[in-house]
Design a binder for these strands. Structure first.
Lengths: 179, 179
DNA sequence: TGTTTATATGTCAATAATGACATAAAGGAG
DNA sequence: CTCCTTTATGTCATTATTGACATATAAACA
């Protein structure tokens, strides 16, 4: 089983979700298209790690809501105990910046500006996520502990926020360099 | 042509390098194994974007040193002008942290400690890179401009350093949470 | 002298991931 | 009533990436 499969199981420890919802919720932390997720869910179901029920909706198309099984939780615990892969980042803009001297300042500034917009939108989304998290929690978020249900999501959104802030700082710094 | 191919061309705008050296130099910014790089270099050579010469070495095995051609530089400029893909990050530890409540604090702390060592080593490597960059430059690094040869490498190493510092801050923050 | 490590280049099968194609229900805008 | 968007699920061909296999030179170490 690949990492994304375990990632899907991870999400399902908190809520039962459809494939479509899983896609939306995992994407901020692990980019994956629906065409990868649906086949993996079918695999997980065959192995008995998840089970699903058809849920009929009147306002939207019907969906298949997946839940993690006890067997799935066992698999998850086994995965967590194993050595963790190193993180992988692939940023095309970084490669372009390496040889940015090939183009003029104006074009370089423009590339940075596009990326900055992307980061700002991303930051907004994480802020929204954090707000929603606070609304669903009795405790203030900074008092959440490892046992609390929202702890995992909280530390991830915090990490993501720190990262996007750093990315924005770098953009600002670059703008100065390209003045 | 894929992004990695352009990344290799980017590196070759600064120095002629062997496939092995290209692998070592691109990995901090775009993870790729030699088994991906060698075939791409062969492709680039066939297309006339790079050319190579055999270089005989007495202390080490002989190598093929690649240089970018004018045609290759044109291809690069075309690539830079195109819209840039969004960055992709895949961090298995983040997925594990989402459901960290499945294991005890001790195990969680241990996972963080392993990752912290990884980040510290990475930070060391970027510090070394920055030192080497300064040694090879007449100007102080913070006075480099877009036209300078070392500018691209400088801004990338700066970005990487900012990122790894943020990652280390997050590790420290997590350690507090898991006390 | 044998062993390990780093350098160096390559192929190939398997896996991971994307993009295109396909379908369909429901809501909203015009 | 038609078009567009969102939700929803799926398949399949192609591309990207990895891991295993393969070979070879040279230094360092025991």
């Amino acid at each position: 089983m690949n990492t994304l499969s375990y990632g899907l199981l991870s999400l399902l420890t908190k809520n039962s979700r459809s494939g479509y919802e899983l896609m939306q919720h995992i994407q901020p932390f692990w980019s994956a298209k629906h065409s990868q997720i649906y086949p993996l869910l079918a695999q997980l179901e065959q192995k008995g790690h998840v089970a699903f029920v058809h849920v009929l909706q009147s306002d939207k198309p019907d969906k298949k809501v997946y839940s993690i099984t006890e067997q799935g939780k066992d698999a998850l615990r086994g995965w967590i105990a194993e050595p963790t892969d190193e993180p992988v980042t692939r940023d095309e803009l970084a490669l372009k910046m390496y040889c940015i001297g090939l183009v003029d300042k104006e074009q370089a500034r423009n590339m940075l500006a596009v990326r900055e917009v992307y980061y700002r939108k991303k930051k907004e989304r994480f802020n929204t996520l954090m707000d929603k998290l606070q609304q669903g929690s009795e405790k203030p978020l900074d008092q959440l502990e490892i046992g609390d249900d929202a702890f995992g999501m909280y530390v991830l959104v915090h990490k993501a926020t720190m990262k996007v802030d750093t990315d924005l700082y770098w953009c600002e710094w670059m703008k100065e360099k390209l003045k």
